[in-house]
Design a protein around this nucleic acid. Sequence first.
DNA 1: GCGACAG
DNA 2: ATCTTGTCGC
Length: 247
Amino acid sequence: MTDVPTPPAAGPPPDRCRAAPRTEAEAVALQESLRSLLVRDESGPPADGTGTVAGVDVAYDDARDLVAAAVVVLDAGSLDVVAEATAVGPVPFPYVPGLLAFREVPAVLRALDRLDDLPDLVVCDGYGVAHPRRFGLACHLGVATGLPTIGVAKSPFTFRHDDPGPARGAFSPLRDGAEEVGRALRTRAEVKPVFVSAGHRVDLDTACAHVLRLTPRYRQPEPVRRADRRCRDALAAAVAAGAHHPA
DNA sequence: GCGACAG
DNA sequence: ATCTTGTCGC
């Protein structure tokens, strides 16, 4: 029997999306496997101020083997916080460039599980398809949840780009060789750009449109700023409560 | 072989 | 990510 092509986006995310590799080689192999589930032909939720947008971020205390994740959901129009959740646990994987998802995604999934209602879009602090194997953090989280995701990073990783014009909204392509894998997008005039890439079920134009709507004042998207603050608070609270996972 | 290297 | 004082500017 010949295998029938697997219809992406259909049905619940397979269990291997939550698999915990023990070695770098296993992690790389898992990324190459999960990559086939990534949906890149949807434009994504419209960036018109409707619906909800969540920001996710993670903070660490490696000495205590603690990771804290936060998800903060905002109304896409008013940017008011409508829900939030956190999760704390042991650090599942060391930091290895290109394998960040295995360090961050497990705790983020537990935080998302605690929400009553899922958001229409998730903004990640890191990359989507701008990744050595085209499967960065935002792609991994998207495939694992089925939700539309985008990546907004603060540094260009290994990719090349020209400096965008000085005005807010100016952008230039972020390239891996000749391929455009994302964009350097200026979210504040005269301020260092952020690096936007598509994750799961969202295209690059729509991703950038969302990022501009989510940055009325600061360089980083409001949902991510809020999540950054919340995960740091959650980590501090866990440490204060004596939570730790020593060897 | 030696750097560079999202968070 | 995290360690960390002061300093410049709106």
